[in-house]
Every structure is written in structure tokens, then in C-alpha cells.
Design a protein around this nucleic acid. Structure first.
Lengths: 176, 176
DNA sequence: TGTACATCAGTGAACGCGCGTTCACTGATGTAC
DNA sequence: TGTACATCAGTGAACGCGCGTTCACTGATGTAC
């Protein structure tokens, strides 16, 4: 059962980012895990509970990428590395393995406070990791710089994915 | 009939940004226009056609705000003005009258190419207006700066709306 | 000005569909003896 | 080791609901005489 549970959550973490929360059905998630939809409620009380679990997984995956960009490098180098990962074609064309903020934030804007708090927690933890790559005189300054950097990256990805390829390319090039 | 048509499109431009495309039903839009859902198909062939018209209206509204921030001011001043409008509590709490990119881009990422082209056109026209506020040696440089500025603003708004109020405040403060 | 008629924007019931959720059932698994 | 039984993860039919869309109808409007 534990193995099934993990397959469900990991499949959901991918599908939610690929299609959005509303366009991902419980049946889709269960099928991706090699099961049928009826069994879902042995694992979660509601679809919302699954979304909670999946978003946590997605944020953890993003933190791992950020941490990998960081380790044992100069601040400047690691930030550049993370930035080029984030704006790469690979990242943009595979939203299922990409940043959950760029794909799901708009839907969470209309979510209940409990979900928004979880989302906020995910964002804060990413910013902490990023702040480690930022140089600045104080902790506050590094955190502010990390937030600006992250906002720009999220904005660029969000805009690029919504536009025709040509416009997308222009925006991405400007942000690198 | 023309008056009805305008009410439908303007209502849709607001509701789509407030609730998202999927969560806005044809019946909702018609009710906001003071009509019943059955009459919708005298005005549009499909819901998609309405989305097209509404997004154009929403982009036009944003351009107007941007142009107003611009007129007869120093580049630096006008950019600051636009930035503080964009990150204001009023803008963030009233998505119905706010930037369509911050609210709808994620959904357009999964839209057919025709809609993405229209979205891209809207983005390009906004960037043109913003480039007028940017100083730089050449046209290319000003456009690139406008794109970076816009990406940061969109990212900040998207992140802030999805998080708990405290996290939102931190991110917004850092981006101002 | 008054009357008959055609047009068509808008109405509201109905359709098929996909969704989240429920539930009676099944059959593999593990335990007790 | 072999047998009887309890448990419960997973199955698949069924539910109620809201959606986009269709359609027969209505009634206000404008034109022709």
C-alpha cells in the first residue's frame, strides 16, 4: 500500500504541473499509478488532500535542484547555473518536472487559506536556499535579492509558456 | 444587441481574471450581463471565442493603465509609478480589473497555438509601451529592460497571490 | 396614423459528458491453530 | 506444513452535479402597406 501511495503522489505531482489542478482528474492520477479510480479514497479523503501532498513533493523536487546548483560553488556561479536551468528549453517544455510556482500559483490564488499557507511555506523554503547564493551585506538584503531573482524567473517562465514561440524566445533572452 | 455584446465581453474580461477560464461558466458571464445562458450563442460560436474577445479587452485595459503612467513624465518616474500600481494592494486584491498575464498566463500555457499567438501579441504590445519608459542606449536594450521589468512584476504578483498574506508581503516589499 | 407581418435577440428546458465521490463486492495477504 | 478465517487494498458500477451546447419557443422591434 505504501508503494501505491508513493506512486499516486508522485504521479499527481507531475500531472498537476502538466495540466493544472482542475484539468487533472482523480481517475487520471490513479491510472498513472496503475490503479483504478475507486481505490483512491483508501489513500486520501478528498482530491484536495492529494493536491496538498503533491505540491509538497513538487516543492521538494525544486529545492533539490536549487541545492544542487548551490553546492561548493561561488555565489555568482551558482545563481547563474540555477537561472539557466530555470529558463532552459528543457525546463519550460517539461512542466511536469518543473517549478510548481510557475505552473500552479494562479490556481492557488483562488484556493482556501490552508492551501495558500502551504504554498507560502514552499516558496519561503525555496527563497532560503536561493538566499544562500546571493551576496549582500546582511541576511535581509540577501533574502530580498533572492525574492527579486525568483520573481523574475517565475514571471519569465509564466509569460514564455503562455505566448507563441517567438515572443517567448524574446522574453527569455532578455531575462538571462 | 451591440450593447449586450459589450456587456458580455466586459463582464467576461472581469470574471475570467477573477476566477480563471475553467471556473467561469457561460451562464455566469451571461448572468453578469443581465441575460440568460441560452442567448449566448447569438453572440459567440463557442466559449473559446468569448475568451479570445475578453482577453483582448483585458490587455487593452492594461495598456491604458501603462500609457497613463507614461504620459509626460521622466522615464524613471513613470516606471516607478507603473511598478507601484502593479504591486499595490488594490491591484493584487482586485484581479478582475488587473493584469491578465498574472491571472491567466498559466491557463494559456495549455491553450491551442491560436490563443497563444493572441496572448503573445498582447504581451508584445505591453512591452512596447513599457520600453518607452526604459532608458538604454538602443531600442533592443530598452525592450530587453522592459521584458525584465515586466517579468519581475508578473512573477511578484503571481507569487504573492498564491501565498499566505505574510509571505506575500515579504515578496512584494523585496520587489518594490 | 393604424394594422399585419417578418425578423431575430433572448428565454428556459433539455441533451450528453466528465467529474468527485460512494459503495457493495473481490481476492490477495497474513495470522491463528 | 496445512487449513480456516479475518482484513482490507483495490475494483467497477452507480450517484448527483455543473458544464458547454442545442433547440423550440416568445415577444419586442421595425418595415410595408
Amino acid at each position: 500500500m505504501q508503494r501505491s501511495h508513493e506512486r499516486i503522489v508522485e504521479g499527481a505531482a507531475r500531472l498537476l504541473r502538466e495540466r493544472g489542478v482542475d484539468k487533472t482528474s482523480v481517475a487520471d492520477v490513479m491510472e498513472a499509478a496503475g490503479l483504478t479510480h475507486g481505490g483512491f479514497y483508501r489513500h486520501f479523503d478528498t482530491k484536495d488532500a492529494l493536491v496538498s501532498a503533491a505540491i509538497a513533493t513538487a516543492f521538494a523536487q525544486l529545492r533539490e535542484v536549487a541545492a544542487t546548483s548551490l553546492q561548493g560553488k561561488e555565489p555568482d556561479v551558482s545563481l547563474t547555473l540555477f537561472r539557466s536551468y530555470y529558463l532552459s528549453d528543457a525546463h519550460l517544455n517539461h512542466p511536469g518536472e518543473a517549478c510548481p510556482v510557475a505552473t500552479l500559483a494562479a490556481e492557488f490564488a483562488r484556493a482556501p487559506p490552508r492551501l495558500k499557507s502551504e504554498f507560502g511555506k514552499g516558496v519561503r523554503r525555496i527563497l532560503e536556499v536561493l538566499a544562500g547564493c546571493c551576496k549582500g551585506t546582511g541576511k535581509k538584503q540577501r533574502e530580498a535579492q533572492a525574492a527579486r531573482e525568483f520573481a523574475r524567473l517565475v514571471g519569465a517562465a509564466v509569460i514564455a509558456r503562455a505566448c507563441d514561440p517567438e515572443t517567448a524566445k524574446t522574453v527569455l533572452a532578455a531575462c538571462r
